[in-house]
Design a protein around this nucleic acid. Sequence first.
DNA 1: TCGAAATTTTAAGGTAACTTTAAGACAAGA
DNA 2: TCTTGTCTTAAAGTTACCTTAAAATTTCGA
Lengths: 223, 223
Amino acid sequence: MKILVVEDEHRIAQAIKQGLEQESYAVDVCYDGEDGYNTAANDEYDVIILDVMMPVMNGFEVCKKLRADGNHTPILLLTAKDQNRDIVQGLDTGADDYLAKPFSFEVLLARIRALLRRPQDVFGELLQVGDLTMNPNSHEVRRGEKVVALSTKEYAILEYLLRNRGRVLSKNNIMTHVWDFDAEILPNNIEVFIAYLRAKIDKPFKGANLIQTVRGFGYKIDA
Amino acid sequence: MKILVVEDEHRIAQAIKQGLEQESYAVDVCYDGEDGYNTAANDEYDVIILDVMMPVMNGFEVCKKLRADGNHTPILLLTAKDQNRDIVQGLDTGADDYLAKPFSFEVLLARIRALLRRPQDVFGELLQVGDLTMNPNSHEVRRGEKVVALSTKEYAILEYLLRNRGRVLSKNNIMTHVWDFDAEILPNNIEVFIAYLRAKIDKPFKGANLIQTVRGFGYKIDA
DNA sequence: TCGAAATTTTAAGGTAACTTTAAGACAAGA
DNA sequence: TCTTGTCTTAAAGTTACCTTAAAATTTCGA
């Protein structure tokens, strides 16, 4: 899967590139609209991520031009928080989805997955460990038969753990994947959320505790 | 991408095979569980599609046996519509996803794509000496079948030894590699940790002692 | 738009696990 | 046998994590 990121802020562009590559996507980066347009026109990508505010040629223009060329690659627009009224315009230019900055990496990943998924895939994939299941489409989490209600952050952390089943994830990993790029939180915050998750998906059930602490390194989920 | 289909109903098996081949997957087919297990065990596949209801050996058994072998290939179970309550059991055996019959081909394709998107390298790297293994991703250390729990420092020292298998490492080497630059510890501290490690990975087991003292020089690990 | 409820964040105290130190016993080599 | 390096043991010191609760923030319905 090949993704093109067009974003003039190097720090953000690099963070996205690095994160996506860790998810084993192939990522190319362009730092302005014109370069982005040329790259997108010459190469085939599975998804294009376009920042709106950019020098030389903004995201809307790039998007419009690509569509005019008959290019149907799914496009995800990145907008600043207070540009919400521009979104309608953005989608009018032929973009498929948008995301307001700042956003967490997990949310970005989820949107990309959604764009890559075909419309027929109504039920989607199922993430599971032992008798714990998560349906990313319906957002439903179950332990055995019982449905478990999770808050946004709880859900995001659990999803991240499940998508890396068996692997130890540091608090830093969790922080950079679940929180906004520029968020600054205490490590203790992660501990608190892990405790919340355990209280909901482990403690009330007889079976093995799925969320495991690996002292000095982080946490992992495994049966 | 290579896919194994294990399904006793020839009509369905052939339909799946044909459809997947049109999507340019390489497809092998087995018509019963035992044959399926043997094929999966001998060949490397990217995804295994397993019918649950099968003669000789059912899908659950095949799945369980493959996982017991340490095979982590993504497995998609096919269940009959009214077997939903078996699903929990199915996922407990280590399957990654399931699909209730009858299903559309598009849904099957989407699920396969989802499975292929998963990070596969979670169980990739494995450090090994004799029957001692360390998985840096899951942080799991085993001697034979037995999982061994190590503290942070114990783990770090063992990892350093394993990455330099057969080479003699001085206490100073270990100190500078495992501790902070400015840490000041006694050489005796290393001896203590080596003793802890031996107590956990050598003493309780019949086989050869893996951690060896080289008097005057340091320690090495070797079979 | 306001207020209540839910969620997220911060903070502090407790605890078990881990690390370090120290001192005496032991073993190998001269 | 003596010296020196290593091993063992236990106690003291430290740290990472967990728990709890209150403060801050966000969400959402009236």
